[in-house]
Structures are given as C-alpha cells and as structure tokens.
Design a protein around this nucleic acid. Structure first.
Lengths: 201, 201
DNA sequence: ACCTGAACACCGTTCAAGT
DNA sequence: ACCTGAACACCGTTCAAGT
C-alpha cells in the first residue's frame, strides 16, 4: 500500500477504461482498502491523476527526426508528434483534463525549434512558423480525437453532406465530402501546403 | 412547467455557469419543483442538453462572405467561422459534449464549398482543400478553447520555453516563444500560408 | 396528465476514532 | 504511521404512489 502501488494501479485503470470512469471508490475496491485510505498516501483525485500523468510522461520515447532538407525534417517532426499523440490517447486525455497539454508534447516543440534554427529562421518569424506548425498538428489531433471518442448518438459530417442540394456547389465536391475523410491524407496535404509557404527557398 | 420553460431555464443556467455545473437537481430547485418532475417533460440530462443545443443553433446568425478574390472570400469565411465559434463558447462546449460539433458549424462548410466551386476547384481536390481549411480553423479554436478554460493549476507553454537552454536553438527564437502568443496573428499567418498553397493562381 | 417521495446506485472529501 | 467508519454534500435515474 505504498504511494507507488496506488499510482501504478490507478494508471492501469486509467489505461484500461479512461479517466472519467476511474473513481476513488473503485480504485479503493481494486486495492482492497477503504476509499479514505488513499488520501493518506496521495492527495485528492487530481493529485493522483497528476502523478499518473508524470509517470506516463517519463515513458514517452524521444521524437526522432528524419530527412535531409529542412522541409522534410520539420514535416517528420510534425508527423512523429501526431503519431505519438495518437499512440498515447490516455496521456493526452489526462493532459487535457489536468491542463498540462503543453508539457505532453514539449520535446516536439524543442525539436521544431532546432530545425527552424538550422533552416535559418530566427526571432518572431521563426516563432510564427513554429506556432503555425504546432497549431496545425495540435488542432488536427484534437479534432481527430473529438471525432473518435464521440458519443454513440454523434452525427458524422459525411451524413450532413449527403443531404446537401445546393446549385452553387459542384456535385463532385458534394460527392467527395459525402465520403469519409482520410485523416492521414488530409494532414499530409495541409502540412505540405503550410510548409511550402513558411520555409525560405 | 412546460417543456419550453424547462429548456429555457436550462439554457440560462448553461450560459451562466457552463455545462458541467448544470445538474437535474439544481435545475429542479431553480424551477421550484422535484428533480423527478423534469423527466416527465423532457427525457434525461443529455436529451435536455440536446434541446438546449438545438435552440441555440437556430439563434446562430448566417456566415457573411466578404472580399473579391477567391482567397479573400475563403479567408473571410474561415475568419467568420472562428469568430462565431469564439462568440458562442457555450454552444461549442455543448456540441462537443453531445458529439454534434459538425452541425454547429455546417453553414460554414457549405459557404466554403460554394467559394471553392466558384474558384474552379472540384471533386476530391476541392474536398482536400475544404477539409484543410476546416481542420486548420477547427483545430485552432479547439486549441484556443482548451488553453482558455484550463484548470487553475495549468502551465503555459511560455513558461516552459523560458527555462530552455539549448545551444541548437537560436536565442531570439527562445525569447520569442517565451512571450505569450497572439492567437489572432497566428491564425492569420497559418491561414494565409495554407491558402497561398491551396488555391490555383 | 402531471407531480412527489422514497429509493437505488453512485460520486469526492473530511475527520474523529482506532491500532 | 497508517487505516477504518461514519458522515456530509453531492450526482442521475426509476418507479410506485398520489391528485
């Protein structure tokens, strides 16, 4: 019944069934202990979740940079960050819940900073570029996750498009929007478009 | 004690203090009635919130399109959508909670479809472009809102940057990242960069 | 038709009491 | 030092009973 054992158990529960469903009482039952015993070792619920978050952070592998040109290397970082976020949905939900989203991806921020410096960008312009890439990546994964763990009653954008009959919109466009999006392709498209405008050539 | 009166009261409460804090019991107290009376008129909590969502949707003003060139007009739609989302944070939180985010911004989707058609784009390429703009806009506002209503304990990305000491990152870039971001400027920057690559010229 | 009251199965957290 | 039990102030929802 150490603090370590409690945090480990909480982490297993969070990873198995999500942040929301983990309660102090269920955790206590899992530990075979009274709910109030937990408060002696860790603080309240949010302090416990913070400890879980910190533990998961240390297990995060570093971001690997690939490619030769600056555009390739920056794109590879953005892809790696997105992949890491997608591979650790629980960590991301925790980060969001605790308001520590920046910390969960900060090693990627630094990697982007290094590549932009190497590409010859500097100062406010480099910061604009860095933030643009971060916003694009972060926005994408946030959107994707909010689409993924939607409630059962959720509507899909495709279904709304299928009912569209607007003479000012080309029918092939309506047809294309009525098919499910390929998020990977959409991300590649937007990322390339952004980087093409951002980087000096 | 009509269904209408209940939904109106729930809406006032949601707008005043957020989705999470509205409970059936508090709403009942506000109505001067037993909690269980609500169930006769509307269904459970989520059905009630759906009714509030639908009522708020009908009050949404249409998206206004400005500018002469396709790039200007598309940019104006993206800006208007972002402004509308920012002006209706309660509606957006409701949409997210209920999994109806697409519906909350669909008039903007259609406006983009019309402008891309007018710009001569069509089929899958137009759909790629449309989705890229939507993802950029949606991602931005999601990120901004998750930064805005962060818990009191939240860290800011600027504070993390202030502690950075990496010889491979130019000091002026570190300094720029240590200052708070201007979200409006970042959005304009990313939007322009994206549109410059997307639109045929 | 419409509302109440009791009840069920949950929450997080505090705090005095035990060992 | 570490744990329990009772208690407080909450949840959403069901359902028999009242008028």
């Amino acid at each position: 019944m150490s603090r370590e054992h409690i945090v480990d158990t909480a982490r297993r529960m969070v990873e198995a069934s999500g942040v929301e469903t983990v309660s102090m009482r269920k955790l206590a039952a899992e530990l075979g202990v009274a709910p109030t015993a937990i408060y002696w070792h860790v603080g309240g619920r949010d302090e416990l979740l913070s400890a879980v978050f910190e533990q998961m952070l240390t297990d995060l592998p570093p971001i690997r940079v690939r490619g030769r040109t600056p555009a390739e290397r920056i794109a590879s970082i953005a892809r790696a960050m997105r992949a890491q976020v997608q591979a650790t949905p629980t960590l991301q939900r925790l980060a969001l819940h605790l308001g520590r989203a920046p910390q969960a991806s900060f090693s990627g921020h630094l990697a982007l900073g290094r590549e932009l410096t190497a590409a010859g960008l500097d100062g406010p312009q480099a910061a604009d570029a860095l933030r643009a890439v971060l916003y694009l990546m972060g926005g994408f994964v946030l959107l994707e996750s909010s689409l993924r763990d939607r409630p059962p009653s959720a509507q899909r954008s495709e279904d709304l498009w299928r009912a569209v009959d607007d003479p000012q919109i080309a029918p092939p466009l309506v047809a294309a929007m009525s098919r499910p999006a390929d998020p990977d392709a959409a991300f590649e498209y937007a990322l390339r478009a952004l980087l093409a405008s951002i980087l000096p050539r």
